[in-house]
Design a protein around this nucleic acid. Structure first.
Length: 135
DNA sequence: GCCAACGTTGGC
DNA sequence: GCCAACGTTGGC
């Protein structure tokens, strides 16, 4: 089982919307590195959902419910989507500022590669963010 | 709104 | 294959 962090701009597609939809096809990724990360996802992998631009915080917990498939309605078969299912809202959102000031999270890809929208995180990083959300 | 950090494109 | 120019992301 692997762990991931996926970014979304809440003005485009929010965590609340994912809760209402229960699950969604995560598509529109047009970056090779992010695409390759999506291809590496396995069913049941843990996903943290992060709101970029507005909020700048980790807001919810989801899981991969379908591994990658060619993006629907896309001419170019190289781009893929995965299906993500909402699991639960974090009791307390975890702010980017708090991630930055946590020494356990100093190496997290969110900070190292700020532009990447789909990134792997370690089990330790995943657990630490969940722990922070429970305080 | 600015700009740093990347990624992509295209001329050579 | 190099690299300058340009585009995009996302924090500030």
């Amino acid at each position: 089982m692997n762990y991931w962090l996926m970014k979304t701009e809440p003005t485009a597609y929010s965590w609340d919307q994912l809760l209402r939809d229960r699950k969604t096809n995560w598509d529109g990724v047009r970056n090779y590195q992010a695409r390759n990360n999506m291809k590496a996802m396995e069913k049941g992998d843990g996903v943290l959902i992060y709101h970029s631009i507005v909020g700048k915080e980790v807001v919810g917990l989801a899981e991969v419910s379908r591994t990658y498939f060619p993006e629907p309605n896309c001419d170019n078969p190289q781009w893929v989507a995965v299906e993500i299912s909402a699991k639960s809202s974090l009791k307390k959102t975890v702010k980017l500022d708090d991630i930055k000031s946590n020494p356990i999270l100093i190496e997290i890809a969110l900070l190292k590669q700020s532009r990447l929208s789909v990134m792997p995180i370690t089990h330790e990083e995943y657990e630490e963010i969940i722990r922070m959300s429970e305080n």
